[in-house]
């Protein structure tokens, strides 16, 4: 469905952030992209959604393809039109707009008003709490509700692929579980394709079908989610468990990392 072929991203004409990232997101699957802060996960998403340009970033090499068509270099609104929508991290609702207005704004690329109403109903049925709050200003929603709203708002454009950036950030585990449950349902019922960026590797690998691990602007590991979860490196660095099942000390981790870099 979505293919990144060896893309390179440069900010401000000098800062090289992505150094040849390739990844594949299969139709109807949930793919997760893991990595530490600054690894380039968000930049990867922005390279896909065309939002790099607003930040003086540029895809300088490689290509991004959606269902075989190149979409890199297209403006953001055209990419949304073609069915790829990005949800930013940090629950960026339109806080001065009501919940319903947020959804309507999300449906901007829909021409047909009937379709907009139908999508609104669909979003409300996935997130009933939003229906209760439809006429409230989005700025006053709770964190969990805001996360539901930004996901719902992205769904309004009837996307084929949704790029989700850290939906679990700063939310209670129970709320995260609820949201991830809805994502699973969306994948199964609407055949939604999801590219999920997460810090919480445990959660993400539990939900996803396939995973990639990023470091320093490169993909360093990839595989089916189940096998990644069993990978000892992933366990060490992202799940925080050593082979003996106990947490390792920070010092040893550092030591290990040094060796690994040398190897790569």
């Amino acid at each position: 469905m979505l293919n990144l072929n060896n893309i390179e991203v440069i900010y401000n004409n000098v800062v090289l952030v992505l150094r040849g990232v390739s990844l594949q997101v299969k139709e109807g699957s949930i793919t997760t992209l893991l990595g530490a802060n600054g690894a380039g996960k968000t930049t990867t998403l922005k390279a896909i959604s065309g939002l790099l340009r607003a930040e003086r970033g540029e895809v300088t090499k490689g290509s991004v393809e959606l269902a075989g068509q190149r979409i890199d270099g297209k403006p953001a609104h055209e990419i949304v039109n073609q069915g790829v929508v990005q949800v930013f991290e940090g629950r960026r609702v339109f806080d001065q707009l009501t919940v319903e207005e947020n959804l309507i704004a999300g449906a901007h690329t829909q021409r047909d008003m009937g379709k907009v109403r139908q999508r609104t109903e669909a979003v409300y049925s996935y997130f009933p709490r939003l229906r209760e709050r439809r006429s409230q200003l989005a700025g006053y929603l709770s964190g969990g509700e805001q996360q539901m709203l930004v996901i719902g708002r992205a769904l309004m454009s009837d996307p084929k692929v949704i790029l989700l950036d850290e939906p679990s950030l700063g939310l209670a585990p129970l709320v995260v579980e609820e949201i991830f449950g809805r994502l699973k349902r969306l994948q199964q019922e609407e055949r939604l394709t999801v590219l999920l960026v997460e810090q919480n590797a445990n959660l993400a690998l539990g939900l996803a079908d396939h995973g990639y691990v990023m470091e320093n602007g490169r993909i360093v590991l990839e595989g089916p989610a189940a096998s990644l979860r069993d990978n000892s490196d992933v366990k060490e660095f992202y799940l925080g468990i050593s082979e003996h099942g106990a947490r390792k000390s920070y010092r040893e981790v550092k030591h290990y990392r040094r060796r690994k870099r040398w190897l790569s």
């Binding site: 939002l51 929508v85 707009l97 947020n102 704004a105 999300g106 449906a107 708002r153």
Partner: peptide, 23 residues
């Protein structure tokens, strides 16, 4: 109107509006 809502969305947060496909 939808255009009016889009305009307020742009005013509220340009980057997010852009991500929603608003020109």
């Amino acid at each position: 109107s939808r255009q009016g809502i889009a305009m307020r969305a742009v005013a509220n947060n340009q980057q997010v509006a852009m991500a929603m496909g608003i020109h």
